[in-house]
Design a protein around this nucleic acid. Sequence first.
DNA 1: ATTAGCACTCAAGTTAGTAGAGTGCTAATT
DNA 2: AATTAGCACTCTACTAACTTGAGTGCTAAT
Lengths: 349, 349
Amino acid sequence: MKLDNRKAKILEFIIDMYIKSGEPVSSKTISELFQNTISSATIRNEMARLYELGFLEQPHTSAGRVPSQLGYRLYVDQIMKKKSLSEEQTRQIESWFNIRDLDYSSLIKNSGKILSEITSCMTILSSMAFKSLIITKIEIIEVSNMALAVILVTSSGIIKSKVCKVDFDINFETLDYIYRFVNNTFAGKSVEKISKNYINSITTGLDNYQSFFSPIFYNIYEMCESLQTSDFYIDGQINLLLYKELKDVASDIIKIFSNKNTVIDIINDKFINLSDNCGAAVIKFGRELKRAELIDICLIISKYNISNIGTGNILIVGPGRLNYSVLVPWIEYFSKMLSVVLSESLEIK
Amino acid sequence: MKLDNRKAKILEFIIDMYIKSGEPVSSKTISELFQNTISSATIRNEMARLYELGFLEQPHTSAGRVPSQLGYRLYVDQIMKKKSLSEEQTRQIESWFNIRDLDYSSLIKNSGKILSEITSCMTILSSMAFKSLIITKIEIIEVSNMALAVILVTSSGIIKSKVCKVDFDINFETLDYIYRFVNNTFAGKSVEKISKNYINSITTGLDNYQSFFSPIFYNIYEMCESLQTSDFYIDGQINLLLYKELKDVASDIIKIFSNKNTVIDIINDKFINLSDNCGAAVIKFGRELKRAELIDICLIISKYNISNIGTGNILIVGPGRLNYSVLVPWIEYFSKMLSVVLSESLEIK
DNA sequence: ATTAGCACTCAAGTTAGTAGAGTGCTAATT
DNA sequence: AATTAGCACTCTACTAACTTGAGTGCTAAT
C-alpha cells in the first residue's frame, strides 16, 4: 500500500487540518497549503483516489474529506514525524516528578490527572502488578495488646504491611514463636504460591493452634494477593466531552473503561501486542478494538516498568483526531520518567 | 414561613412530580393528583401564591411551575417524609461491605463507585484525616542491605510504613542504635507536632550523624503528614450528564469538584456546619454554596467516622431534583455502615 | 372560596426558501 | 497524460413565517 509522494502529502495535510479543526477538509484548503501550485481540481482528483483506496471518508456528497481509520493508521505508522520534545518540555515533565512526597498510589493517581490535562483525553493508569516476588521474611510487631502488625518483606525490597487482630496474650514468647513459625512456613516462597488453598492446607494441619494462626495467615494471603493485582485510576472523563464527534458516545465509552475487567480484556488482547519495554506507545483505532461502542475512539497504550519487578499500563483514550506527532513523544517521555521515578522509590536492590 | 396544609400538599406534589420527570408541572396535573376534587383554576391560584412566597419558579409565562431552591429547602426540612429502608435494602448495603479483602483506600474508592451507582450522582469520598494520634513506637527492620523499613505505630493502632534507602552498613548494632534513638526522639509525641521545622531542628543538632539519620527522619515526617491529610476519590462524573438541566454546566461542575482544595473549602464553609455524628446527611442547594458555577446543583454531605480517631466525608453531587426521601436514608445508612466496617478493620484498641 | 370560561403567551415543531461551501464531471489546456 | 478552468449539482445550515397546543392569568358567575 505505497502512496506516491503527493498523495501522501495530501493525506498528511488533510489529517493535520482535521486534527486541528475537527471539520471536513476541502480541496481548496489543501490547494492553498500547496500555495496554489496545485489547483483544487487536481486535489479533488487525488482525494477521489485516496477515497477509493480507503484512506478518506466523506460525511456527505458536498462536504470535504475526513480521514478514515485506515488513513490514521497509515499516518501514524508511516507518514507522521514525531516532534521531539523541547528542553522546556522535558523540564516540565521532570518538574512534575520532583514532588517526592507522594506515596506510590498517589503518584499513579496524580500522573493520570496530569496526563489527562496534557493530552485533553481520558486516562487510565494501572498500578503495577508485581511478578515473581519472593518472600524474604515476615516481621511481626506488637501494635497493641490485641493486635499485631504483619510486615511482608520481598526479594525486591517491596514491603507490605497489615494490622491483624488476635485474641491471645501477646508477650515476648508468643511473638517469638509466631515469628519463627511464620518465617519457617513462608520465607523463601514465591508470593504467587500463597493461594487460598495453600493457606487452608497449612491451617488445617495445625489442630489446636489453628485459631491462633489463622488470622495471621489470612492477612499474609491478602497481602500476597494485593501485590499481584493492580488498581486502576481513571481520570479526565470530561475531556471526552470536548470533542463534538464523541458527544453522543462519550458516556458509553466512559462506562466501558470504568470497568476494570473490560480494561484488562482490552489490554490483554493479543492483537494489541504490547512490547514490554516501557515508553514505546502503541496506537489502536476503534475498529481494531473489536467493540462496537469504541468504534469512534483512539487508544494510546504505553507501559511503565521496573526491569523485572513489574509493569503498569498507561491508557490514553480520545477521538481519532489526536495530535499524535506531539502527544506520542510526550506520553513516551512521561512513561519513561514514571519508570525512573518508581525505580528510585521502589526498587531497592 | 408556615404554609397551610393544602399549599404544602401542592408544593409536595409539584416537587415529587418534578423530581420524577424534570418537566415543569401544570395545574391540571396537580388537580388530577387531587382526583379533580380541586379544580385546576384553584390550583393555579394557589400556585400563584406559592410563587409570590418564593417556593416556585416559572420557566416562562405559559409554562408549568418548577420548585425554587427555597421550595426544595422547605421540602427537605419540613414536608418530606424519609422512606425507611426495607430489610432487603439494608441487606443489600450490608452485602457490599462483606467483601473484606479490601484495604482501606480500596474500600473508600469502591464505596464511592457504589454510591454513585445507587444515587445516579457524582460522588466524592475523602479518606479519613486522623487526628490526635500519638506515636507509640517506631519499628525499624532490615529490608535489604541498602534499605530499612520504618514502621510507625500509633496510639489507635493505625500503622504506616515506608521503605527508606540508607547508605551505611546495616548490622545489629546500627539497627539497635537507630531504634533507640528514633524511639527516644519520637515515641509519645503527637503526629501533629512532627513538622518539617521540627525535623530540621533535631537534624541540625546531630552533626556527624546528620546524613545518617536524616533520610529516616524525613520518612517519619512524611508518614505523619500523610496520616493527617486525606485523599479524595471522585466517581460517577458521567451521571451528571443524565440530567438535562445540567448538560451545559456538567463539565464546569466536575472541574470544580476535581480540585481537592476547592472541595476542602466547600466542606469547611462555616455555613455548612456539619455535625460530627456520622450518618446525619446535610443537604445544601446551589445558592447556599456561594459559587456561581454551582448554582444549579444540590450537594448532600454525610460523614463517616470512628469515635475520636478521625472522620471522612461523603459528598453526593446532583441536580436539585433528587429523590431525597429515598436517597437520604440510603446515604445515611451507607455512612453508618462504612463507619462500622472501618471501625472493625482499623480501630484496634 | 371556588370554578368555568376565555383570551393570551410562549416554546416547539413544520415548512419553505436562501446562501454558500464543496464536489464531480467535462472539455480545454499544457 | 496530467492538469485545470468552468459549471451544474448536491447538501447543510440558517432564517423567516406559520401552526399547534400546553398552560397560564384574569374575570365573572356560582
